[in-house]
């Protein structure tokens, strides 16, 4: 049986290529049909906010790529409620159907996967 990977994405979409590269690693795993979950943590939750205008920074729209996750079979999407709250996003509408987890649930999520990668 394939081993499960939890990918923890911690960077804002405008903070260099890290967020895009985390997403690329997730999509590559999805292409191999691997059991993969994605947790948005710390500044990573900023990838989920809607209404961004990345073209103002001559950037590609990461949100459009995030929409590809379910198409690649990656439907286990999570966000830290604490990270959202710290950034005033506790009530914000998010661009992806993520499950919001409190700290205990984040701990359980970490423990329930075979492989952890933080980017």
């Amino acid at each position: 049986m394939a081993r499960s990977m939890l990918l923890i994405s911690r960077q804002a979409p405008w903070a260099g290529p890290a967020a895009r590269e985390a997403l690329d690693l997730a999509l590559a795993g999805g292409a191999f049909d691997l059991p993969l979950s994605l947790l948005f943590l710390d500044d990573g939750v900023l990838q989920l906010t809607s209404g961004q205008q990345p073209q103002q920074l001559q950037q590609k729209d990461l949100g459009a790529n995030l929409q590809a996750l379910p198409l690649f079979g990656i439907e286990q999407l999570y966000a830290s409620q604490r990270s959202l709250t710290e950034r005033g996003l506790q009530h914000a509408e998010l661009g992806l159907p993520v499950q919001r987890l409190d700290d205990d649930e984040v701990r359980q999520l970490l423990a329930s996967h075979d492989l952890l990668v933080t980017l």
Binding site: A2, R3, M5, I8, R10, Q11, A18, D24, L25, A28, G29, A31, F32, L34, L115, L116, V117, T118, L119
Partner: peptide, 22 residues
């Protein structure tokens, strides 16, 4: 090579050890 090489190796090895994630 591509990212699939990381996934493939992680599936087969006993341990994946990462250094320097953000």
């Amino acid at each position: 090579s591509g990212l699939g090489q990381l996934h493939e190796a992680a599936q087969q090895a006993d341990r994946l050890v990462c250094f320097g994630g953000d």
